[in-house]
Design a protein around this nucleic acid. Structure first.
Length: 425
RNA sequence: GGAGAGAUGGCAGAGCGGUCGAAUGCGGCGGUCUUGAAAACCGUUGGCUGUUAAAGGCCCGGGGGUUCGAAUCCCUCUCUCUCCGCCA
C-alpha cells in the first residue's frame, strides 16, 4: 500500500508509475490527494473539540475537588454541545479515512525505474539465458507421459480423492519431492536463511498484510467456518512473522526460508497450458524471504537472484531470467525477476521462480518498521521474497530434459544423495 | 466442548472513575568513575497522528456503551492460563 503523503508530494511520479504498470484508474491519485486535505482539516477540527472537552472535564474535576458544585454544574452543561460536534466530526473523519483507505489499498505498487515498458509477457526483458537446450530423441515424451509410464505421479488418482490439480506422488515420485525440498532447504540454510515451518492456514489480517486480500480473494481456498485461508505461498505466514514489529537496524537483513505446500484455486485458468504439472491446485515450494533496509534492498534482490541461479545450475537445467515489464508485474511488486526453465519436450519455457522486491508496499500494510541505530528514526522496512524453488515445473523439466534415448530419466548428481537412486526407469 | 481466572509500556508488575501515557523493578541508551570492564551513581528510555518546530489529538487485547471525565464501571468479541471432557 502506498502512503498518502508520499502520493501528495510526488503526484506526477506516482501517476507515471501507475501508467507504466498499466493501471487505468489514475484519477484515483487526485481523489486521494483531495480526500487527504479534507481529512486533515476535519481531523484538526475534531482535535480542537476534543481538546475543549478535555479541558472542561479537567476543570470540572478541580471544581468538585474544591467543593464548588454550582460552578461545576454550569460547566457540565456546556459538554453536550461539544459532544455532539465531536460526534459529527468523528463520523466525517471515519468516512473520509475509510474512503481514502479503500482508494489506497486498490493502488498497485510503483515500478522501479529499471522496469521495462510493456504490457504483455512478450515485453519482458530477457536479462540472461544460461545452459544448453538439450536436443532430445524423436521418441522423447512430455512429462505427463513419463509420469504415467513410470507410475510416479498420478493425476487421475488425485482427481478421485480430491479433484483436478491435486496430484498423488508415488514411490520414486514421492521420494523425488522430498529430495528436492531437502535440497532446496539445505541450500537456503547454507546461504544464511533461517528455516521456518509455518502454519499452512492464516487469518484475514495475515492475508491482507502481504496483499492477498482484498485483490486476490478468489484465488485462495477459504475455510469459512473459522474464516481462515489456505496459504497460496509460504510468503504469507513467513512475512507476517514481523507484522506490527519494530525491528532493530542491527538485526537486518532478516533472512527466512520455509518449505510449504501451496494451495491455489487458479480460478479462471483452463486450457492447453495446464496439462500435467504445469498448473496445479496444490504444490510444494521452498520460499525465501528477506527484510532489509531501503538502501540495501536492491543489492539483496540481486543476491536472491544469484541464489536461485545456483539451484538451477546444480539441477543442470537451462534457464533464463526475465525482468518483468510494467504490465506483467504483480500488484505488490516494485521489481520482479522471473526464472524460466526450458522444458525440452513441451518445447517451451516454464516459470519456476519469481523473485521480487516489494519495497515498502507490504511493510506499510504489515506495519513492519525498523529503528535506525544512527538516527533513531522509525521507518518502514523493505520486504523481498522469491521461490527457491517451486517443485512441479522443476519436476516436469527434470523428467523431460534428462530423459535418455533408452527412455529412462537420469537425475542430476546434486540430488543423488537426497534421492537414494539415480535413475527412474 | 463445559467451568473458572486473566489480558497494562521490550520484559516483570502496580494502578480509590478526575492530578495516569501510566508507580516500581529489570532491560536498553547516554554520562560520571576506571588503563579497560564490572559494580555504584546521575540522566534518559513507547507507538500513531500532526507541525518548519511546537501545541494539540489518539492508543492500557479488539469493538461498543455509561459519565462533564474511563486503564479503572457495563456489554460484546478475541486470545491466554487452570480444571474437566475428547484426542494426534
Amino acid at each position: 500500500m502506498l502512503q498518502a503523503n508520499y502520493i501528495a508530494q510526488n503526484r506526477d511520479a506516482v501517476v507515471a508509475g501507475l501508467q507504466k504498470k498499466h493501471f487505468k484508474e489514475t484519477d484515483k491519485v487526485d481523489q486521494i490527494i483531495a480526500i487527504d486535505e479534507k481529512r486533515r482539516k476535519v481531523k484538526y477540527d475534531l482535535d480542537e473539540v476534543l481538546a475543549q472537552q478535555n479541558s472542561i472535564a479537567k476543570e470540572v474535576g478541580q471544581l468538585f475537588a474544591q467543593g464548588k458544585r454550582d460552578e461545576a454544574d454550569v460547566l457540565k452543561a456546556k459538554a453536550p454541545v461539544l459532544k455532539e460536534q465531536g460526534r459529527v466530526l468523528q463520523e466525517q473523519l471515519e468516512g473520509l479515512e475509510k474512503e481514502q483507505h479503500e482508494l489506497l489499498i486498490s493502488l498497485p505498487n510503483l515500478p522501479h525505474s529499471s522496469v521495462p515498458e510493456g504490457r504483455t509477457p512478450e515485453d519482458n526483458e530477457v536479462v540472461k539465458e544460461v545452459g544448453e537446450i538439450p536436443t532430445l530423441a524423436d521418441t522423447a515424451k512430455p512429462h505427463w507421459e513419463l509420469m504415467e509410464q513410470y507410475g510416479i505421479i498420478d493425476l487421475a488418482l488425485g482427481t478421485k480423492i480430491t479433484g483436478a490439480g491435486f496430484p498423488v506422488y508415488i514411490g520414486k515420485g514421492a521420494r523425488l519431492q522430498r529430495a528436492l525440498v531437502n535440497f532446496f532447504l539445505d541450500n537456503a540454510i547454507t546461504a544464511g536463511y533461517k528455516e521456518i515451518n509455518p502454519p499452512l492456514v492464516v487469518n484475514t489480517d495475515s492475508a491482507t498484510g502481504t496483499g492477498q486480500l482484498p485483490d486476490k480473494e478468489g484465488q485462495m481456498y477459504h475455510a469459512t467456518i473459522d474464516d481462515f485461508y489456505l496459504i497460496p505461498t509460504a510468503e504469507v505466514p513467513v512475512t507476517n512473522i514481523h507484522r506490527d514489529d519494530i525491528l532493530a537496524e542491527a538485526d537486518l537483513p532478516i533472512k527466512y526460508c520455509a518449505y510449504s505446500p501451496c494451495f491455489r484455486r487458479e480460478a479462471g485458468s483452463y486450457g492447453k497450458d495446464v496439462r500435467g504439472l504445469n498448473r496445479l491446485h496444490q504444490f510444494e515450494k521452498v520460499e525465501i524471504v528477506q527484510f532489509q533496509t531501503p538502501d540495501k534492498s536492491y543489492e539483496t534482490l540481486e543476491g536472491m537472484v544469484k541464489h536461485v541461479e545456483g539451484l538451477l545450475q546444480q539441477l543442470e537445467l537451462p534457464y533464463r531470467i526475465l525482468r518483468l515489464c510494467g504490465g506483467d508485474m504483480s500488484f505488490a511488486s516494485a521489481l520482479t525477476y522471473d526464472f524460466e526453465v526450458y522444458s525440452a519436450a513441451q518445447k517451451r519455457w516454464l516459470e519456476v521462480s519469481s523473485v521480487s522486491n516489494f519495497e515498502t508496499f507490504q511493510s506499510n500494510r504489515l506495519k513492519t518498521r525498523y529503528k535506525g541505530h544512527e538516527d533513531k528514526k522509525t521507518q518502514l522496512v523493505h520486504t523481498l521474497n522469491g521461490s527457491a524453488l517451486a517443485l512441479p515445473r522443476i519436476v516436469a523439466a527434470l523428467l523431460e530434459n534428462h530423459q535418455t534415448a533408452a527412455g529412462t530419466v537420469r537425475l542430476p548428481k546434486a540430488l543423488h544423495s537426497y534421492l537414494g537412486f539415480e535413475e527412474i526407469g
